[in-house]
Amino acid sequence: NQESVVAAVLIPINTALTVGMMTTRVVSPTGIPAEDIPRLISMQVNQVVPMGTTLMPDMVKGYAP
């Protein structure tokens, strides 16, 4: 099972992602793959992401799977 990126904290809208904001977990449905965390650093979320929420591609500005 592939791990997906999950919010480790509440991430406010338009916040640039940092390593500490993200964790990984096997979830269903799957979100952004864990191995993409290095690509996500400094990208901004386009909505509020509650802690424990799986990051989906459409939540991150400029992210393309």
Rank of each mutant, 00 (worst) to 15 (best):
P57S: 15
P33Q: 07
D58P: 13
N1V: 05
V5C: 03
T53N: 15
L10T: 13
V60E: 01
A64M: 12
P57M: 06
L10P: 06
M59R: 02
Q47A: 15
N46W: 09
L17C: 01
V60H: 01
P12C: 06
A34N: 07
D36K: 14
S28W: 03
N46E: 07
I11C: 02
M56L: 07
A64K: 14
S4K: 02
V48M: 11
V60R: 00
A8K: 10
T24A: 13
M22Y: 02
D58N: 12
L10Q: 12
N1F: 06
I32H: 01
I37K: 08
S28Q: 15
P12A: 13
G20P: 09
M59E: 01
D58C: 15
M43S: 06
P33D: 04
P29F: 08
A64T: 11
A64Q: 07
V45C: 03
V19Y: 11
P65M: 05
V26T: 09
D36S: 10
L17T: 00
E3V: 05
G31F: 02
V19I: 07
A34K: 14
G20Y: 12
S42A: 12
M59F: 10
T30R: 06
T53F: 09
T24G: 13
L40G: 00
Q44F: 13
L10N: 06
D58R: 10
V19A: 14
R25Q: 12
V49G: 00
P57T: 15
S4L: 02
P38N: 09
T18V: 06
V60C: 02
V26I: 15
A16S: 07
P50F: 06
V48P: 15
G52Y: 06
T15L: 10
V26E: 15
D36A: 15
S28N: 11
L40Q: 00
T24C: 04
N46S: 10
A64H: 11
T23Y: 11
G62M: 06
Q47M: 13
I11G: 00
S28D: 14
E35T: 15
A16R: 11
I41P: 02
V49R: 02
I13S: 05
A8E: 05
Q2R: 03
V49H: 01
I13K: 14
T15C: 03
I13E: 12
P65E: 12
D58M: 13
P12K: 09
G62T: 07
I41A: 09
L17H: 00
L10D: 07
M22W: 03
V45L: 08
V45A: 08
T54Y: 05
V9N: 07
V6T: 06
Q44N: 12
T23D: 06
R39D: 03
M21W: 03
G20E: 13
L40T: 02
Q47D: 07
G52W: 09
I11V: 06
I32W: 02
I37T: 07
P57G: 15
P33L: 04
M51Q: 12
I32A: 03
V49P: 00
T23F: 13
R39L: 05
V45R: 00
T54A: 06
I37L: 06
V49N: 01
K61H: 13
M51F: 11
S4R: 02
M43R: 13
V45M: 05
A34F: 04
T18G: 04
G31H: 02
Q2A: 13
V9T: 15
A64Y: 04
S28E: 15
P57D: 06
G31I: 03
T23G: 14
